[in-house]
């Protein structure tokens, strides 16, 4: 019997989940400890992957917002809404994991430094997008208002990224993309890239499924009228 498209989608998600878990297994049990931070540095594989996913979600949100301003098609709105939701989830995860990592390394769970503060602002903007989306009924007004905010949200991303070089911060400077190449040893670097890649793929699956669910919901509402 042929697998239905829903089952195929489910098994794809399951496969991506296992890839993420394999990366975490390597992060926790295989790669060696770091010279300065010891074992606690292993949070990097989750924290950085979540942060990259957050930035990617903002970029995707911007693209779908531009598309929805141009064509008003429902699917762009659903994809935008899904991107904002996934972006918010991973922003919260970034802040929580960063906070947990901060306690043993900086001595505090939170500080109002540039990187942490700008990331928090991004999370608030994502939440604001979801509230704005919900406050309008389906239609052109919702589409336009959400799309404008969706485009503005992406403007935070370069500020967050450059915050560690523009201002004096507690947060460490870039380790991956920097002049002279990454400061990480190869055994750390390859796993970090794999962790980021797997988390990004999983988040794209989340966005796709959530957008389809929103479209299904809209279809049901149309049928019920």
């Amino acid at each position: 019997m042929l697998m239905s498209k829903h089952n195929k989608e489910f098994f794809l998600g399951l496969a991506l989940f296992f890839v993420v878990e394999i990366c975490w297994f390597f992060a926790l049990f295989i790669v060696p400890a770091e010279k300065m931070q010891g074992e606690v540095y292993r949070i990097i594989y989750l924290h950085v992957a979540s942060a990259v996913t957050t930035f990617l979600a903002a970029f995707i949100l911007m693209i779908f917002s531009i598309l929805s301003l141009r064509s008003q098609a429902d699917r762009w709105m659903h994809l935008g809404r899904a991107s904002a939701e996934v972006g918010l989830i991973f922003t919260v995860l970034t802040l929580i994991t960063g906070s947990i990592w901060g306690r043993p390394t900086w001595g505090v769970y939170w500080t109002w430094d540039a990187r942490l503060t700008t990331t928090l602002i991004l999370g608030i903007l994502y939440a604001g997008y979801l509230v704005l989306y919900s406050s309008f009924p389906h239609g052109q007004e919702r589409s336009r208002a959400s799309a404008i905010l969706g485009i503005l949200i992406f403007s935070c991303v370069p500020v967050i990224y450059k915050s560690v070089t523009w201002w004096r911060t507690l947060h460490q400077p870039p380790t991956l993309i920097r002049e002279g190449g990454s400061t990480l040893s190869p055994e750390f670097l390859y796993l970090l890239i794999a962790s980021i890649f797997s988390m990004v793929l999983l988040s794209l699956w989340f966005i796709s499924v959530r957008a389809k669910n929103l479209a299904l919901k809209h279809e049901i509402e149309s049928l019920s009228v």
Partner: peptide
């Protein structure tokens, strides 16, 4: 810290 982060 590792249990908390990865658990969450």
């Amino acid at each position: 810290y590792l249990i908390a982060a990865y658990g969450i």
